[in-house]
Amino acid sequence: MTLSLSDIKRIAKLAHIEINEADAQQSLIQLSGIFNLIEQMQAVDTQGVKPMSHSRDMVQRLREDIVTESDQRMRFQSIAPQVEDGYYLVPKVIE
């Protein structure tokens, strides 16, 4: 597998991280090296092996449907970059 510069730009866009040409070049070199290491995985035949998402076979516990949280907007919004009338503000979203 070979990574290309356009791959780097595509994933940076997906990840919402601005990347300039020089950084993209640098990332390409480093990520290519890392993917060489990762490629070792392909040597093993894993047919029939069940994927493991969690470190042990655990089961989801369920919460009772009870309201436990109270209004903490003042506290939470005191650390927000920009708020107005209780709303978080962002540049105008155009649909």
Binding site: M41, Q42, V44, T46, V49, P51, M52, S53, S55
Partner: peptide
Amino acid sequence: QAQKLRRLIA
């Protein structure tokens, strides 16, 4: 593939 190998490692 990594998740499957994770199981083999475990």
